[in-house]
Design a protein around this nucleic acid. Structure first.
Lengths: 143, 143
DNA sequence: CTTACTGCAAATATTTTGCATTTGG
DNA sequence: CCAAATGCAAAATATTTGCAGTAAG
């Protein structure tokens, strides 16, 4: 248990949301400027192998890291605005059981974020006047 | 409709499985060595915008491309051996309806591959003798 | 002490972009 | 003829690795 490792764990613990490798690097740098990027990458890899840290792929393949302790939940990301919403882990229980029995495949639903369109972006589409193309330009992009 | 675009479409049409950008580059190079990497990337981007080509994120974020015409189906990748299995598109219909009504989020299940462990790797785990660690070393890795 | 970890720099790998040239329609 | 697409090279990103020095236990 070394300095860099403590810093990485601390950075992950401080965030409720998950962080990309680069965000961890940045966050760690704020706490301890001496820690090198490569050490963060290696630490994330090591801690993942130990099961202390897990990662989820959101959006277009972006890898985000979080502590394994966080209670299990699924993620879904809006392909338009990039917002990530949390979903109950139980959501895919039935599907998981079905896939297991039908295909012998055991799902690990928390490893990948589902994709789709959030309520807000759907509303924008519905409201949007095709002539202007953009109905409510104030919808912030979270990507 | 230019040469490079025809070559990219041809490469995608020739494969039943989906291809990564780099695989498309390679495949296109075999047909038409004059086509530049950058053109392939730009073509994939353009054709995606047109809706002719779609992409799926499998495994650890890898982006794979396929023709939009392919009948809809889901993918699931084994995190151990990398094998990708196809699942019926209807599998997530119920979940999609639930998420839509409960969270206002509209799922697009075909955009991301589910993750988990395939039947074969599960069998290996069950059979594996903890002392040796590797029960059947003949199981090929598809990653 | 001795193994494992770190910092650093350079190597890889992947995708994007500016620009001059070519080409499809 | 002209807008759009291409080839090329270089830039921008992201991640990995070899190596020598440092530190944890």
């Amino acid at each position: 248990m070394t300095g860099p490792r403590r810093a990485v764990l601390s950075a992950l613990a401080a965030q409720h949301e998950h962080l990309t490798a680069d965000q961890v690097v940045t966050s760690v740098a704020e706490r301890d400027p001496g820690v090198h990027r490569a050490s963060v990458y290696r630490t994330l890899e090591t801690l993942s192998a130990l099961g202390v840290v897990q990662h989820v792929h959101v959006g277009h393949g972006t890898t985000t890291y979080h502590l394994a302790g966080d209670e299990a939940h699924l993620h879904a990301q809006c392909g338009r605005c990039g917002a990530v919403i949390d979903l109950p882990a139980s959501l895919l229980d039935d599907v998981a059981a079905l896939v297991r029995s039908q295909h012998g495949f055991q799902l690990d639903p928390s490893h990948v974020a589902l994709s789709g369109t959030c309520a807000r972006c759907l509303a924008l589409s519905d409201t949007a006047t095709p002539t202007t193309g953009r109905a409510r330009p104030d919808h912030e992009d979270h990507r």
